[in-house]
Structures are given as C-alpha cells and as structure tokens.
C-alpha cells in the first residue's frame, strides 16, 4: 500500500494529469477520422455540444455531389450557415434527415456529439495554413 507522502504525491499527480489530459484533448487532433468536420459556429454558444460530421460515413452512402450540389453545401468548412431551424424545416442536413431519406433529427446527441471546446474545422488531414481552411 502507499505511504502517506506518496498519497499526497498521487493526488498532486492526479491533478496534474487531469489538467494535462484536458489540454491534450483540446489541442490534439490525434485520432480523429480523416475528413471529419467539426461544426461549432453556433452550437456551443447555444449550449449544445459541437456537431461532428463524418465524411466517411456519408460517402459510403452518397456521392460528394449530392450534398455539395443538391443540398448546396459549399466545399469550405465554415462557409455554410446552418441553423437547427433550417434543418427542422428541411434545408441542409434536413433535406435528407427528415425521416424519409435518413433518420429524423429527434436524437440531438447523434450529431451534437463533439467534445466541448472544439474549433470549427476539418480534421485528420495535414495542416493547411492557407485560406483553404475557411
């Protein structure tokens, strides 16, 4: 068993570890799936988790053109103004997520699934420094 001073160390190290974990989680894109998009222009300001959009999941089911032409999503992370009201009324994600083409959006946590504090951006690729991000 641990001695008393060791326990103190353990507590101190736990605190340090906690801080470091938070820092690491917030700063590191380590394992995010290639092309996952974080949408957090509004979500967190309005008390919801950021939205994670997975390109891989959607491209198995739809070609790029469906969202980037028919649904008129611009091909720049952050370039699309999407509100929950839009989606409920059948625009953007709501063009498919309406209970017809894909499941309807009653379960908030399926899309609002990101860790708090994430910045809006596309994840998992090499860091591009240019205007390509926005």
């Amino acid at each position: 068993m641990l001695t008393n001073p060791e326990k103190k160390h353990l507590i101190a190290s736990s605190v340090l570890f906690g801080i470091l974990s938070v820092w690491l989680v917030l700063s590191s894109p380590v394992a995010a799936e290639y092309a996952d998009v974080v949408l957090n222009k509004r979500a967190e300001k309005e008390g919801m988790r950021p939205v994670i959009f997975s390109h891989w999941f959607h491209r198995i089911r739809f070609r790029c053109k469906v969202c980037h032409s028919e649904l008129a999503f611009k091909m720049r992370a952050g370039a699309n103004e999407v509100t929950m009201a839009d989606i409920i009324e059948g625009r953007f994600c709501g063009m498919c997520h309406n209970g017809e083409v894909a499941w309807s959006v009653e379960n908030c946590d399926l899309c609002h699934s990101g860790k708090p504090g994430l910045e809006s951006q596309i994840k998992g690729s090499h860091e591009t420094g240019g205007p390509g991000i926005w």
């Binding site: 309005e46 008390g47 919801m48 509100t83 929950m84 409920i88 908030c108 946590d109 609002h112």
Partner: peptide
C-alpha cells in the same frame, strides 16, 4: 432533457 429544453426555449427554431 437538457437538449429538448434548449430546443424549446433558446434554439433558432
């Protein structure tokens, strides 16, 4: 519960 409360009270909708 939290989510639905927000949807009803503060969401864009």
């Amino acid at each position: 519960l939290e989510n639905v409360k927000r949807l009803l009270e503060v969401s864009s909708g």
